[in-house]
Amino acid sequence: MTFGLGTFSAADGVPFPGLVVEGRVYDLRPDFSDTLSMLNDWDTSLGRLRELAAALPGEGVALDGLRPLPPVASPQVLMGGANYYTHLEQLHAALLRKQGDQRSDEELFAEGRKFGRSRLDGEPFVFAGLPRALSGATDDVVLWGPGVQHDWELELAVVIGRGGRDIDVKDALDHVAGYTISNDISTRDVMSRPDAGMADYLMSKVRPTFFPTGPYFVPREFVPDYRKLRIQLKVNGELMQDESTDDMIFGVEHLIAHASKILELQAGDLLLTGSPAGNAGHHGNRWLVPGDVLESGITGLGVQRNRCVAPE
């Protein structure tokens, strides 16, 4: 039996760890106090979860009757960037055009494709997020200023089940507990800092509510091939992102191995794997505004629905 795992709250607002089976959520207390403690001994926990899924405790509650919180109180949030071929081609072509390149769109995209393929000769690009930016799969996204060019980036995210340093690529998937959905909301017009000559990810990417994640994570054993998933995002019903994870440049294994060379991974860490093509810039700079509704999904990992709101 397949199942998901997450953190939920009912009307009383008290969070609890839940086992998700066929659209219903089963309270995992007292077996587990929260999902992070579950991941701290993942091999043992997974065996117990299989037992619970085979003999479901109680009647459960409909998933749509609960508020999904971020599935795990992740100690660290790591983010892969520039990691989809088509997305990178679009970004590189747009940059060349912005810099005054007068070649045809076809020529610019050919140059972008060449640039995207060259990434394999380098290393993955991974940077840090902030756990406090995580929000739930149905929570509102607050479009904080400064900046008004708010963009979406739907991503496959990895939940780490076993930490470590200097992890070998061939062993990396053994460190994966499961997969979930995360949307990396980014404010483009405050990302570049000409005065410092750098990108400002603190300003543009890690504001509160900017990482809707969940509604749950699915154990790795139920996702036989993470490169055969479909990522789709709609804004007010209009399809904006629609891509296969097979377009990923560096796979999950390489991202984990690379990140573990920089820092020690911990159980419960969240690793975003990059966003595919189809951001706001590709849709005529159609930035997010209050009132917009984001509907997002990845094959087998559930769906998100987030309303964009102005700061109070």
Rank of each mutant, 00 (worst) to 15 (best):
A257G: 05
L5Q: 01
G18N: 05
P219Y: 06
A267G: 09
A62M: 11
G136S: 03
L288Q: 09
E107I: 00
G4S: 00
V158A: 09
V293R: 07
A137K: 09
G164K: 10
E22D: 14
E107H: 00
D34W: 05
E111H: 12
R162D: 01
D27W: 00
T7D: 03
V77W: 09
G13M: 01
T273R: 07
V159E: 13
L69K: 12
A267C: 08
L52I: 00
V289R: 15
D151L: 09
N40I: 14
S118R: 10
P290V: 06
L233P: 06
R188T: 07
G18W: 01
V252F: 11
F3G: 02
R227D: 07
D174F: 08
S135W: 02
H283M: 02
L63D: 07
G278A: 01
F250G: 00
L173A: 15
P30M: 01
R188I: 06
R193D: 11
R24D: 09
A73T: 15
L88P: 09
E123G: 11
P215T: 12
L39F: 03
N306D: 01
E238Q: 13
L95S: 12
Q241P: 05
L130T: 12
G65F: 04
L154Y: 02
Y179F: 12
R132G: 15
Q232A: 12
Q241L: 07
E22N: 11
T44E: 15
T213E: 13
I167Y: 01
R188C: 10
M79I: 15
L229P: 09
D151C: 09
N279G: 15
L154F: 05
N183F: 06
A172E: 04
E221K: 15
P15C: 08
G164E: 10
V148C: 11
L130N: 14
R113C: 08
L39W: 07
A157I: 07
H87F: 00
G116M: 13
V206F: 14
L46C: 06
P57M: 04
R162W: 00
A196E: 14
T7F: 03
R188W: 03
Y216A: 12
V148G: 13
P224R: 00
G18T: 00
H254V: 08
D101C: 10
D225L: 06
L301N: 04
D269V: 00
Y216M: 11
D171I: 06
R193Y: 02
R132V: 13
F211M: 15
G197E: 09
G268D: 10
R50D: 10
G6W: 07
P17C: 02
E221P: 08
